[in-house]
Design a protein around this nucleic acid. Structure first.
Lengths: 219, 219
DNA sequence: GCTTTGACATAGCAATCCCTATCTGAATAA
DNA sequence: TTATTCAGATAGGGATTGCTATGTCAAAGC
């Protein structure tokens, strides 16, 4: 029967390779279970079982439930979101096309990758409740955030940029809008149609290009 | 000593009044504890103790821990957000002033009412994980959402509204942006300065007024 | 006045939690 | 081959959980 490997001729793994593999499998399982049950709601037994290992195996790879969660936080914030950012500068950042691409990305994140938003919410809640990890979280977010800022910067320069608009401010607004719309679509998909994010971005950038009026003018 | 009441001559409460009072105290305590520990992380003992009652008192007022949480969800979504919406139409909804007012509101929600954002995140996670309450949640959000739409509608009409912009779409964008910025400010306050939300709103509305270009034009 | 009702306190049960001490068997080194 | 190491399995301890059965005492009805 040879039931052990569907992949063609998986070779015998070395000791270190095997350990790395189980670590990775445990992290993936933890991401799913944490997303579905939350940090305190998830049990280490469920995570270990979902990965196909025992509880002891989990504790032989991670010092505690919290350490497992924190490593997950660091990993996902570095590569997972960075991948979204790189999918962003694949496209030439002209407003028209980039907007459509970003709309597509939002729908895919919201509808296909159903674990993403709950997991991120769980991370945010953990950081708010444990301020000592706030710095770590901010540091992990810096790289993808920088990528987003660069995309926005080139997009602002391509259009005739009005001076005095901070790239970081626009990046913050775009990121906040993205996350907010993803969450809203999970509650009521009809209220966040496919093109909405793209439209909002076009409103935003044409408004910026037009030069926003000074904030306080009349009472 | 008369140590029992600081308020001037608090009269003896009737049976129903006393029960209503403990219910209210339990709900307030539950809001604080759920915000700090999460749904599964909070224990009924801690909630009861924070309210100054016993576990039995809690179960004599609420059928279960979940029922207590769901009542909290319904209550907060009806009156708490509605109060924010009414603070919104206190002001004449001219872009300039309304923007500043909304900026102030955001900062106050993010910095002063520190329990609000975590509690809302907890509600969102619960709804995503328990789809049977999605309808209830959506129903509770309908009223404040309608108020927001009306403010936006009058604001759009006051400026010469370009036809074809959906009021609901703008309301969704504004709400998502608000929530996203509140969350971001909790992680890194410096990245969300006081005026940011107001500026974003002005960008958005001037962009809408200018008439956003049709989404897909060039490849 | 007495009786009834019910809001709340107390104590405890059964289940589950995170984590650890101990053991097994296979991969490495000699 | 024999000895050593270490990833992972097994079993269980100690603590905590949500919830309930029972008791108590003041308010409401007669």
């Amino acid at each position: 029967m040879n039931a052990e490997s569907a992949a063609p001729a998986r070779r015998r793994l070395s000791r270190a390779e095997a350990k790395a593999r189980t670590r990775s499998l445990l992290l993936d399982a933890a991401a799913r279970v944490f997303a579905r049950k939350g940090f305190t709601g998830a049990s280490v037994e469920e995570i270990a079982e979902a990965a196909g290992f025992s509880i002891g195996a989990l504790y032989s790879n991670f010092g505690s439930k919290e350490a497992l969660f924190l490593e997950l936080l660091a990993d996902r914030h570095t590569d997972r979101i960075a991948e979204a950012a790189q999918a962003l500068d694949r496209h030439p950042a002209g407003t028209g096309e980039a907007a459509a691409e970003l709309s597509r990305l939002l729908i895919e994140v919201a509808d296909k990758d159903t674990d993403f938003a709950p997991l991120q919410a769980e991370f945010w809640l953990y950081a708010v409740r444990n301020p000592e990890v706030l710095d770590t979280m901010a540091a992990n977010l810096r790289a993808p955030r920088h990528a987003l800022e660069q995309v926005i910067s080139t997009s602002l320069n391509r259009q005739d940029a009005p001076t005095g608009v901070s790239t970081e401010a626009v990046a913050t607004v775009v990121a906040a809008l993205f996350g907010g719309l993803v969450r809203q679509r999970r509650i009521d998909p009809a209220s966040v149609p496919e093109e909405l994010f793209g439209h909002a971005l076009q409103w935003l950038f044409t408004g910026i290009r037009a030069g926003a009026p000074a904030p306080s003018d009349t009472v």
